[in-house]
Structures are given as C-alpha cells and as structure tokens.
Design a protein around this nucleic acid. Sequence first.
DNA 1: CTACAGGT
Length: 476
Amino acid sequence: MASTFYFYDLETSGISPRRDRIMQFGGQRTDLSLKPIGKPDNFIIKLDDDVLPQPDAILTHDITPQKTRADGLSEREFLHFFTDKIVQPGTIFVGFNNIRFDDEFIRFSLWRNFFDAYEWQWKLNCSRWDLLDVARMTRALRPDGIQWPFAPDGKPTVRLEMMATINKLSHSSVHDAASDVRVSIALARLIRLKQPKLFEYLLNLRNKTKVEVLVNGSEPVVYTSGHYPNEYEKTTMAMMVGPRADQPGALMYDLRIDPKPFLKLEPAQLAKLWSDHSKEAKYFPVKILSYNRCPAIAPLNVLDKKDAKRLGLDLKKVDKHLAKLKAADGFADRLNKALEIIHPPKQPKLVVNEDEVDGLLYDGFVSQPDKTRMSVVRAADAETISDLTVDFDDERLTALLPLYKARNFPKNLTSVEAANWEKFKARKLLAGGEGSAAAKYFQRISELASKPMTSRQQKHVLKELEIYGESILPAA
DNA sequence: CTACAGGT
C-alpha cells in the first residue's frame, strides 16, 4: 500500500506527557506530494475527573475542561477511533516537534487505555517523522526561498507561529490543533517546494537503521539539533565518539571545540561538566543522538566552503580537532560511565504504586501474553467490565485496571471500587497540604488572574478553571 | 523533557 503522511497536532492540559492529557486532536492525511486525502480530523477529548490542567496551558489554547466534558470523546473512545481509522498501513505520522511532544502524549494515552504504545508508529509499515529539525536544517544549510524569523531578542527561531506569519502560510488561529495542522502542512509544502532535495533526503532518513549507518561511518556528519546553540543555526560538524551504552544512540562530539581538555578526564569529572547547567557553565561538546528520533544529519559533502563560512565552521580547526579525537583512547567508555553517574540506572520497582502507574510506560515492555490480556480489557464494555478478571504478568497493568474502570465506566463500579477511586483522587489532588496539586492549581490561577497583562477574556477563563477545580475536588 | 528551544 502507498505511503501517506498523517499530519497531526495536539492541544494538551500541560507540557508533561506523563502527567498532562490531550484535550484536542487535529489531523489530516495527505499523499506524499502533500495533497490532502479526505477530510481533516478534529476531536475534543474529555479530561478525566482525577486530572487538574495546568492553568497556563488552558490560557494558551482556550479550551476549558468544561468544554471537553460537554463536547468531547473519552480518551478510550478517541483511541479506538485513532487505532482503527487513523492508523492505516504505510502511514508516516508527522507534526512539528511531535517526536519529543505529541508522540509522547499519544503513547501515554495508549498506555493508560490498554493499547500498545508503540505499534502505531512501526507496525503495518508505519513510521514517524518530525518537521522541527527539518526546518532547522533547511535554515542552516539551504535557506534560500524561505523567510526565516527572529525572536524579539534577535535570535534565530523556527517557532511554528512565526514561520507561519513571516511566510504567510495561514490566516487561521494559532494554538488550535486543527489550524496548526494546516500550518504544518503548508510549511512542509514550502520546504518541499523550495528545497526538494533536502526534504526528500531527510524524509528518507527517518529510518533508524539508516541513521545509525550514517552516524557510524568513518567521517564526521553535519548535525543540526536543538541541543546546539542558536548562534550557528544549531548546526555543527560532529563525529561519533562511540555508541551509547544503554540505549540505541551515539555520543556525538562537536568538532568546533578542541577536544584536548576533555579527552583525559575521569568519568566523574566529565559527569560534573556535562550536568552543569548553571549560567557560568562551560559548553560541553558531547551530545546524545538517538537513532529513533529522526535526527537531522547529513554527509559532509552537503557543505560547500561558503556554507561552512556562514555557519562559522573553520575547516582547518575541525580537521585538527578530529585528528585529536581519533587519536584518543577510551573516551567513549569514560563518557558512558559519566552518563551512568548523571542518570543512574533505575532500580526495578518491587511494588508498583497505583499513584504513579499512569506514568510508568517506560519501566519496561509488556509481555506477549499480557498484550493478549490487554486486548480483552479493550474489548470489554459497560456490560462486561464488572465481571472482567484479568491476571496480568505485569503488575503495572494490574494497578492500571481499576483506574481504567473508574475513568471509563464510573456507573459500573462496585461500592468498594468507587470508594477506592475517591481515595485515589484524594491522594492525587489533595495530598501534601499546601503543596498539593489542588493547592498549586488554585494558587496558579490567582497568580495569573492578578497579572496586569491578563485580559478580561483570560480572567473569564481563569474563573471557569476555578469553578472546574472546585467541582472535581474529592472530599478530603 | 533534557539542556537552553520547542511543544502546551
């Protein structure tokens, strides 16, 4: 079956995929020439009553929890539509910063609802891509034919709304999922029209094996990444020091920087420099590249002398730095040991905590028998959910089931289950007194309400949020 | 989040 793009964007209740929820989903399928196929999708998704949104997020998109409750699908209903209708063979899921944002929200939503979190982006020849680093690399290497915005502080930026304005991509409103999808498609068209070779090249590089082959070559690569500063368009020449020990990725050395001061350092010293993010911290020239996150990398021959100069790359220095790096011994090992100091490997939890289980997707993969059991949970309806007994291997799924029941079938709970759900909400929202989720929520609402920049309309939304918060608070 | 930009 022919590949298609599926452009999508979310408006959420905050920026943490573990904690926050999808409130609006917008999407549009296109063919590979970016011509729409069928009608756009646009869904409002209900906020569950154990979740308080981040007030700042609500002011960003103006979708109140009340609106989601009045007009929305449940998460579960939405995900059935998503996995049945939107996930079609050969779909390339794409958005603007979806790999580090929207895709994560989809994964955690699937997790909470007993769907596989990953299959939608690999099974049936599906894959994912992301326009953010495509835009950044185009700006760095092939900027002609496209207007490139600067932030008010004068620094280059590729923020979607600024790209839209300066290139007249759309007249619609920002921070509406359906509208941002149209803007993303328009941006993809613009880049494809003006710089077709780079567009096609990066599209074909979305495969993690191809990325790994290019990175593991004997030559450095041109690498554009959000990890690099704006000064040189977030782009440098980088050489793999070695593979990352614990995950499929590479340790990339930034060849602008003389490696000598770093090559002999002990892991503890490297860890200290690497994790120092204070104002005075010196730039640390090693970054992690993940093969499966569609990094924007290219072979050196994309750079001519003029490009190198524009990007502030002194090729003679780069060569010297590369020679020193190649002559060094054991640097990759010491860097991997440093990483282990910075992020100590997680101890597997002996007892799964029900209060955290919504966020435990990455604690491990689900076994094959459990996947079958998950499909039984998914298939249960209001009639059958009460009698459902499932004996999972994975304690996380056991802990998740009562939450799933309470969120989706509140009328079908036994009195014990209902009481447990009330206790769960009380712990989640009220535990910690002054520092509780509810206290922070109301605190933030009043902070925002008293800001001079807050408009009448925003104050109205904040009032709605206050009413909403009070309406879902469990009895303490 | 993971490192100073991008997403809500």
